[in-house]
Simulated assay, not measured.
Amino acid sequence: MTPGHRAKELVIVDNHVAVGVDGSAESRAAARWAAREAVLRQVPLRLVHAVDWPLDPVLPGLGRQDVDRWADQALAEAAEELRRRHPGLEITSRCPTGRPAAALAAEAADAALLVLGSRGLGGLVGFLIGSVALSTVTATDTPVVLVRVADDPDGPGTGAAELVVGVDIHEAGDRMLAFAFEEADRRGCPLRAVHGWKMPPAYTYVPFFDPDNERDVELSVTHMVDDMLLPWRHKFPDVRVTTSVFLGSAGGRLVQASREAGLVVVGRRLRRSPLGVHLGPVAHAVLHHAAAPVAIVAHA
């Protein structure tokens, strides 16, 4: 089957998992998460360290050889640790030169998944999204997972925790649902689909609101969500699926669900504008407040 035909079937090609490595605690946690994911997928792992030279050397006074030596050491130490943890895992390393976001996005082009480390917000849950991570997320069509130190897969609560996915009946979410169901299937964990809805604007002007109208709309929306999930339930019969349909913000409910989740999956529209690409309000809320790793999947 040709790669183009596979894309039409919305099957994510498991070439390899790529992870950004820079020697920080966040990138080490991301590398451990990525290695575990590569083992689950039975694919190789690629460690990537982008060297931004000569525009932004690591420290003042360092020469090119010093920067290269530091990059090689960061990659070697990460590879050595991961080989100890996963002896059978194929691990390769790359050290491209260029702006980190552009280099990481280029490395993600032929990967099934890109994993990046991100700092946590002190004692709070959520992520501190740096410019490199945010620019990389919006520069690639490849799914990107953001991981904090607290998301280390060797820590507590990782096991078969449920996977949470935000769905939108108004968007073409097949690529995101394919990712979510495949992840839940390979992890052997339950999947919870979350959808928040709003009453039509016209109801704002109705002087005497009938509560039955709200119940009717909720029932209709629930049916639409079930219809959206039905093909994927049939394709992945072993995945136990629950739905959460409610009146209100999807972002807030996804953040709440992330406290018991092993992974949260949200979508990002492939939309260009004069102001550039950006994350939608749901993805933005989840990234800044989620208590679990977050996967961002681009879709039309």
Rank of each mutant, 00 (worst) to 15 (best):
G166Q: 02
H16L: 05
G123P: 14
F209G: 00
D151G: 12
P96S: 01
E182K: 12
T2N: 10
V245C: 11
G251T: 04
T158V: 15
H86P: 00
W70H: 13
G117S: 06
T2A: 11
A105G: 10
V51R: 08
P207W: 01
D151L: 05
D68F: 01
V21Y: 08
I12D: 13
L89G: 12
A298W: 03
A71K: 00
A283P: 05
L104E: 09
V266T: 11
E183H: 10
M1E: 14
A103N: 07
V21K: 05
L270P: 00
D185L: 13
T2V: 01
H170A: 15
C189T: 15
R272L: 13
D212F: 00
E182N: 14
V48C: 09
L40G: 08
R269H: 10
L104D: 06
P54N: 03
A30W: 05
L177P: 01
A283E: 07
A290I: 08
V17T: 03
P57K: 06
W53H: 03
L10V: 11
G157D: 12
E26Q: 15
A102W: 03
D174N: 07
T92I: 03
L47F: 07
A150F: 01
S131R: 08
G130Y: 07
A172Q: 14
R28V: 12
R6P: 00
A178S: 15
Q256W: 03
L279Q: 12
V164T: 05
D174S: 11
A290P: 01
Y205S: 10
Y205Q: 06
G173K: 00
F246E: 08
R69I: 00
Q42C: 07
H289P: 00
D226T: 09
V149L: 12
S131T: 12
P200Y: 08
L263H: 06
V286R: 00
G248W: 10
V239H: 13
V241Y: 07
G20H: 01
F236T: 02
D227R: 15
P153W: 00
R64P: 05
H223Y: 01
A193S: 10
G159R: 11
R187G: 09
D212L: 14
V239Y: 09
T92R: 14
R175N: 09
V194N: 05
E260G: 12
R271T: 12
G122H: 05
R36H: 10
V245N: 01
H5F: 09
E37V: 15
A25I: 07
H288V: 02
R186L: 15
G262L: 06
A105W: 02
Q256G: 08
A184F: 13
